[in-house]
Design a binder for these strands. Structure first.
Lengths: 285, 285
DNA sequence: ACACGATCGAACAGAATCGAACAGAAGTGA
DNA sequence: TCACTTCTGTTCGATTCTGTTCGATCGTGT
């Protein structure tokens, strides 16, 4: 509760240059704050004259502003408060460069698995977004996705296929849509092929970070004739928070290096096709 | 639940200068909110005189508006609620063209019309995207949109509100989602306020370019308690391919310059609140 | 270190505003 | 028509804000 308050002041006779018509105390304090931000510092007498109020009131206003941390008080006036600290920006596109070459290769190889007229689902994830970039310019496909990253990748070129975005709750950090609405809307589609990413892949199955994403992935899996997992080799043999499905759900795994013996054996046991993409090719993404 | 309600007031004998014929309490509060948005601050006595109501009622109205987070109360009156998030946003590529300034001003004024806890719908369009940029950092809102441009604008800052994207067919050029799926999904939402853009505004109503977009706009209108139209002055008096709705659908028009005589008269006849955004403000852009 | 002037903060009084309580008016439903 | 609900205006004591006064404190020049 801010002790803001204002009033028509008795206003001593001398009706001199008022500032900005700040009649209310709250508005006056805001204007005062702005004045301090503009000049960096300001004196009590100066304020009193400009705003047409008594110095005592100025002091009280400054006290209130100091209380809220907006300014720093000093004898005879006030100065701008120092910013507490650097905002610490989350390195948003940092992960993009990690393994970018491998992911591009995987995306390219996965794109080759898509035939004309296919109805494909694209899951959330940077690897899948690379696939999206590959098929953005193709025509005749129907594409269903809950990934805004994939949409952005596709729209870098003229979009010639039909793209349907499933709605839902926005997870801003991932650029994904999920939740009950997504689930329900996914139920209205049937997919030839679903392309999903993963945080980890081990003989125990496919893993991801968050429950919400996992639910959407499950929705894709349930409604797809073929499940194609895009997963670079750094994720082999690891596990993560939430299990999406067992290996038996996978039709094809597209990756950048052959899996190790244990995982390879498990994949073979579940009849998973393995496509190893060649990332030597040099191309501009 | 907001205790909004209206009634014919006893109205003391002195039938002096009323404002906009706001008979219903809800309408009066809306008008009051608009007045505060336009002026930045307002005193209880001033309101009482302009609206022809007692100061006690004014206080009650202000309390209600404060409850909803639309304004900040202070002794003797009220001021605009602070935009919670960082006030001075480094405008990315703004100021590039002249219209951008107007659109930003409109977006800012429109943002002031949004109270905490509001459920708002954001339509497709660059002006609405400016609004999205303003409210991106705000918390406690529920936002429903079919505009990927709006989503992009919001995610430039940490997103603190709940954002729901309605799914649908992707119109890549506009960055919008539309079609039957969008329609159906919109039907599952109820909106406090819908903010929509337009290609043209004339006494005949609101116009837009494409049928698909118009259908979505209609969906927003049908499901919104208040329709707020964002429309810069260059679109006044013009018409376009597809009619969205008549002026009677509009609760509030936010623009950058007062409309001409003919349009102003039509707006007044349909009891449309008009907010003229002030783009003179020179902020540390 | 000392003194002088400016600034500060507490306390007081005046004015305006606020909020609770009550009663009247208008709509609602039986 | 009558009870009930909601909104409104009025009254009046309590609260809040503002300006003034005055002793204490701080800053500065010598």
């Amino acid at each position: 509760m801010d002790g803001e308050a204002g009033r028509t002041a008795p206003m001593p006779p001398g009706g001199e240059g008022r500032r900005g018509g700040a009649v209310l105390a709250a508005a006056r304090r805001r204007a005062l704050h702005v004045a301090i931000v503009e000049r960096g510092e300001i004196s009590v007498a100066e304020i009193a004259k400009e705003f047409g109020i008594s110095e005592m009131t100025v002091r009280r206003d400054l006290d209130a502003l100091q209380q809220s941390g907006a300014i720093e008080r000093s004898h005879g006036g006030a100065v701008l408060a120092k910013p507490a600290a650097a905002p610490a920006e989350p390195s948003f596109a940092a992960r993009r460069n990690v393994r970018a070459r491998a992911k591009q290769a995987i995306g390219r190889a996965a794109a080759a698995l898509i035939a004309d007229r296919d109805v494909v689902g694209l899951d959330v994830g940077s690897t899948v977004a690379c696939l999206a970039a590959e098929i953005g310019g193709r025509s005749g496909l129907s594409i269903v996705t809950n990934s805004l990253q994939a949409v952005a990748a596709m729209t870098r070129r003229p979009v010639l296929s039909d793209v349907y975005v499933v709605g839902g709750y926005l997870r801003a950090r991932e650029g994904s849509l999920c939740g009950a609405i997504t689930q329900r809307q996914l139920a209205d589609h049937w997919l030839n092929k679903a392309f999903i990413g993963a945080a980890a892949l081990s003989p125990e199955g496919i893993f991801d970070y968050s429950i919400e994403e996992v639910q959407v992935k499950m929705g894709f899996i349930r409604r797809a004739g073929e499940l194609i997992l895009l997963c670079d080799s750094s994720k082999f043999g690891r596990r993560s928070f939430a299990r999406v499905a067992g290996l038996e759900a996978i039709s094809t795994l597209v990756t950048d290096r052959p899996p190790g013996a244990e995982l390879a054996e498990a994949l073979r046991r579940h009849e998973v096709q393995v496509v190893v993409a060649d990332d030597d090719e040099e191309e501009g993404c």
